[in-house]
Amino acid sequence: MEIDAVYEAGTLYLDERDELLILDQTLLPGERRYIPVKTAQEVWQAIYQLKVRGAPAIGVAAAYGLYVASKNIEENDAGKFCDKVREMSAYLAGARPTAVNLTWALERMEGALNLARAAGVPPQALRQALKEEALAIHREDRQVCFSIAQNGLTLLKKGMGLLTHCNAGALATTGCGTALAPIYLGQARGYGFRVFADETRPLLQGARLTAYELADAGVDVTVICDNMAASVMAQGRIDAVLVGCDRVAANGDAANKIGTLSVALAAKHYGIPFYVCAPTSTLDPACPDGAQIPIEQRDGAEIAQMWYRAPMVAEGAKTYNPAFDVTGHELITALITEKGVLYPPFDRAIAAVLRP
């Protein structure tokens, strides 16, 4: 792959000692440090505390995490071993409720466990089945990212100004990203994109992460405050918007980092294409529409205190901190997946692409 070298070390990986190492994204851009995770509790905390984040990366982390945590199970009975693995899986699934990739990956891991259990193998072989499935999920994520890059680039032209919100790049996956994947491929092919990255309050994923990885790859990137997006569009500097997502409902409604809805509304007003880049593992046919997507509520300290020497919200004032909002399908121009570009009506397109 011509962009396979993007962050080759990866967001996370299983090392030669069979230990899971995760890039702690809470330290970026100032420090690049990998941390070991060995227990289900450590995996849960790494996901919840955003040390690893981005729907695809969360899925891969959970898969590897279930495997490494299973090595702590001292049980010679295969049935009891499986019961404990399922308990761990249910526990990990609660770390980030909005990202459907988390439960998708864990369900795949449980499916591999069930197949191995049906074969009557001992716990050690069951553990090996978990490892092989986690490795497969990891390999597939890298390929999915590249396919999204190829499909997304067909919609873009050289020299375009592109706006993105949050971080849906190499740091949010184990490959070259989702929303940033076409940008990386375009960079490799000389497209010369100009990228505007919303800072993405309150956790600043755009400023800290998107700008970090794009600048490091030599992409022309400019960070803007979230409330500047509409103004930049009005100036004619944006030709298309690319965002990732954590879940797409059956009708095409998409949940992404808080603030995405505002960007979509502004893009609709100015007639700018709004593309959601999503692996098919993010499509949730069991969820009829965006109103049914659970939205994670996070600690208000992220708004009031996290980036300040002293609290920046007046004492006694309340905070409201949903991690995601839902962009209605009517605001979305197309869904860019590894299996192709999906256009409205999204309910039919999603059902068709997920059909066996």
Results as ranks from 00 to 15, higher is better:
182 P>F: 02
226 D>Y: 01
218 G>W: 10
209 L>K: 07
222 T>V: 15
193 F>M: 05
144 V>E: 08
153 L>P: 01
224 I>R: 03
183 I>A: 01
234 A>Q: 15
141 D>P: 03
193 F>P: 00
139 R>H: 15
189 R>G: 06
210 T>P: 09
227 N>L: 14
211 A>C: 14
203 L>M: 12
229 A>G: 09
201 R>Q: 15
208 R>F: 11
237 R>P: 05
175 G>L: 01
167 N>G: 10
155 L>G: 02
159 G>A: 12
175 G>R: 04
162 L>M: 03
228 M>F: 12
228 M>L: 14
179 A>C: 07
141 D>W: 05
145 C>W: 06
164 T>D: 04
213 E>A: 05
147 S>A: 15
165 H>A: 13
132 E>Q: 14
219 V>K: 04
236 G>E: 10
203 L>G: 06
155 L>P: 06
185 L>F: 05
132 E>S: 11
189 R>T: 04
134 A>Y: 04
206 G>T: 12
164 T>C: 06
143 Q>W: 09
134 A>V: 08
234 A>L: 14
150 Q>E: 15
206 G>V: 06
199 E>L: 10
144 V>K: 15
230 A>F: 10
169 G>I: 02
183 I>P: 00
135 L>Y: 01
151 N>T: 08
144 V>Y: 02
136 A>S: 15
207 A>I: 07
220 D>Q: 13
170 A>S: 14
212 Y>G: 07
142 R>Y: 02
146 F>I: 13
187 Q>Y: 07
212 Y>M: 04
177 G>A: 13
213 E>T: 04
203 L>K: 10
189 R>V: 08
224 I>K: 04
136 A>Q: 12
207 A>W: 03
176 C>K: 05
164 T>R: 04
197 A>P: 10
147 S>G: 02
153 L>F: 01
